[in-house]
Amino acid sequence: MGRPNPLKEKSFAFAIQIVNTYKHLVSEKKEFVMSKQLLRSGTAIGALYREAEQAESKADFIHKLGIAQKECNETLYWLELLHASSFLAIQEFERLHKNATELIKLITRIIVSSKNNKPNN
C-alpha cells in the first residue's frame, strides 16, 4: 500500500458522513432541497481531489484543488443553513462543520504549497 494521503482519506470519510447525513435528512426530516445541495457539494470535494491526482500539469492540479476548495466552502454554507433552520442537530452540525473546516484548511495548505513550488513562479 502507498503512503498515507490525508486529503484523500479525509475527503472520502467526509463524503460518507455527508451521504449518511443526506439519507437522514431525507428519510427522517423530509428535507429534500438543501440536503441534495449538501450531498452534491460535500461529495464533490473528494471527487475533485481524485481528478487532481490525475492532473495534466501543476496548473491543472492547482485549478482542480481550487474547485474542491470552493465546494468545501459551499458545503459549510449548506451545513450552516441546515443547522440554522433546525434540520441539523447541534452535535451533527459541529462534527460535520469541524471536518469540513479541517478539509478546507488542508486543501488551502496544499494549494499554497503547490503554488510556491510551481516552476516560473
Rank of each mutant, 00 (worst) to 15 (best):
L38A: 10
Q91S: 11
F61K: 11
K23T: 10
Q69C: 11
A47H: 11
S85P: 01
E9Q: 15
N20Y: 03
I45E: 04
E94D: 09
N116W: 01
N116T: 03
R109N: 13
V112M: 07
P4M: 02
K29A: 06
Q54I: 10
K115M: 07
L38R: 11
Y49L: 05
E9K: 15
K30W: 00
L65V: 14
F32T: 05
I62H: 09
R3F: 02
Q91D: 13
K118S: 14
S35A: 13
I45N: 09
D60H: 11
K23I: 12
K70I: 09
A84F: 00
E9N: 14
A15E: 01
E9Y: 12
K115R: 14
V112S: 04
Q91G: 02
K30T: 04
K70S: 11
N120M: 10
L48M: 13
Y22S: 08
H24L: 14
A13T: 05
T43I: 13
W78A: 10
Y22P: 13
K70T: 10
A15R: 08
G46S: 06
K23Q: 10
G2Q: 15
G42N: 08
Y22V: 12
T101S: 15
P119M: 04
L88E: 00
D60G: 07
L48Q: 09
S86Y: 05
A59N: 13
K64Q: 08
T43P: 10
T21N: 11
A59G: 05
I45Y: 05
A68C: 10
Y49H: 07
F12E: 10
I107D: 10
N5K: 04
P4F: 01
I107V: 13
G46E: 09
R109G: 00
L48P: 03
I111V: 12
A44L: 05
E56F: 01
S114Q: 08
G42M: 05
R40F: 02
G66D: 03
Q54V: 12
S85Y: 03
T101M: 07
L103S: 08
I67F: 11
R50L: 05
A89L: 09
G46Q: 06
A44Q: 11
L25R: 13
K29P: 01
L82K: 06
V33R: 15
L38W: 00
K98T: 14
S85A: 05
I111W: 00
H97E: 07
L103G: 06
V112C: 02
M34Q: 13
F87Q: 15
K70R: 15
V19A: 05
M34D: 05
E51D: 10
E28P: 02
E94K: 14
R95T: 12
V33Y: 01
E80Y: 00
S11F: 02
G42Y: 01
A84V: 05
N99K: 09
E53A: 04
F12L: 11
L65I: 13
E53P: 02
Q17E: 13
L96R: 08
K36Q: 13
A47W: 00
S57D: 07
W78P: 15
N73W: 02
N99A: 12
S86K: 14
E51K: 15
N99V: 01
